[in-house]
Design a protein around this nucleic acid. Structure first.
Lengths: 92, 92
DNA sequence: ACATTAATTAGCCTACAGGCTAAATATTAA
DNA sequence: TTAATATTTAGCCTGTAGGCTAATTAATGT
């Protein structure tokens, strides 16, 4: 799976887009527990969504004791912006 | 399924992204047969991918006799651009 | 009329995404 | 050292995405 596929696939699921938006709105970082609290899903379900996002490079984390903080990797979204650029104007 | 989900899901599959790029590069429109010829997949498989893209509003078509021409709806990609805007700068 | 061409629809089959609960891991508090 | 807290891992189960072939539809050419 290449980078484009990972990122586009990761963003395809509404729960994962919500996770991205939520962390972003909270300033760019949240602990796993804070993220899990926001969602209706069982915690392990959210964990897996987070892992998909991280595998795509859209999130990364730091461990502080037993607390894991996830950060948004905004630059990774450039991959999507770059892809969209192909459609910005008529090709010739 | 809302518009965001439709568009992001449609773009998640590599074959569908390739269809978008291919039509775009060919000037914005291609017949179903021309599209199908480009891909390794059986034609019905490509038909389904096209239908997913059309259902998401990313393509539309016109029928001329037995030939169906598909067109890219570039403006629909703004949905993705708009979504990405949330991450353009730190929120406050 | 009949065959050919363009394309979709029908329907099957398989892999896997994404939900869950229960168990495990690791750190901190009592 | 035992209990509590934070989080992931393991593993199950179900629905559906996405591949295929065969059948259908509809328009065109002979």
């Amino acid at each position: 799976m290449d980078a484009y596929e990972a990122v586009f696939t990761a963003l395809a699921h509404p729960a994962r887009r919500r996770i991205m938006l939520t962390i972003n709105f909270e300033g760019g970082s949240m602990t796993a527990g804070e993220i899990a609290d926001v969602f209706e899903h069982a915690w392990p379900t959210t964990t897996r969504h987070i892992q998909v996002l991280e595998a795509a490079g859209l999130l990364y984390h730091e461990q502080q004791g037993r607390v894991r903080t996830y950060y948004i990797n905004r630059s990774r979204l450039d991959l999507v912006r770059d892809w969209l650029e192909w459609f910005a104007k008529d090709p010739h």
